[in-house]
């Protein structure tokens, strides 16, 4: 159960390989990767993610602990970046390993839903028109209701 909050990029392939390789306790590994999406006008210059350093890792670990209570997980890995990113850059990844795929998928969904709305990150988009803080979506808050 690993949580990493870092500014620098991560190697998705290497992370997943290391996470899944040689695992004999879990027949199912699920990965979700979040990528900086361009604006509909394709004018996103960069995204900047601010976070609350004293709280971030602890908040994510709390979310992870709830997932471990609820699903049969043999391992989990959460990497979330902060700082400046370009369209197409990877922001974060979640990986879960479980004996069965339903647990791996559901736990990954749960982790994603909670990371969206309960981990202290704030996204700001810079376009030619200036900088705008990304608003939290009602549907992201609503997504927590299903758990």
């Amino acid at each position: 159960m690993v949580v990493i909050v870092q500014e620098c990029a991560f190697e998705l392939g290497a992370e997943i390989e290391a996470f899944a390789k040689g695992r004999t306790d879990a027949g199912a590994v699920v990965n979700f990767t979040g990528i900086v999406r361009d604006t509909p006008d394709n004018d996103l210059d960069r995204m900047e993610i601010e976070h609350y350093p004293a709280m971030t890792a602890r908040a994510i670990e709390g979310i992870e602990a709830k997932a471990i209570e609820r699903w049969s997980l043999k391992a989990s890995l959460i990497i979330h970046r902060y700082g400046v990113m370009k369209p197409g850059d990877m922001i974060m990844m979640v990986a879960t390993a479980s004996p069965h795929r339903v647990d791996a998928f559901e736990a990954a969904m749960y982790l994603m839903d909670y990371l969206k709305s309960r981990a202290p990150f704030w996204k700001k988009e810079y376009t030619k028109d200036g900088a705008v803080w990304v608003d939290a979506k009602d549907e992201d808050e609503d997504a927590l209701g299903k758990w």
Binding site: M112, P120, V134
Partner: peptide, 12 residues
């Protein structure tokens, strides 16, 4: 010891 104020979070 510490109070924080911020907008709704936009992680993930």
């Amino acid at each position: 010891r510490e109070v924080a104020f911020f907008p709704p979070m936009t992680g993930g």
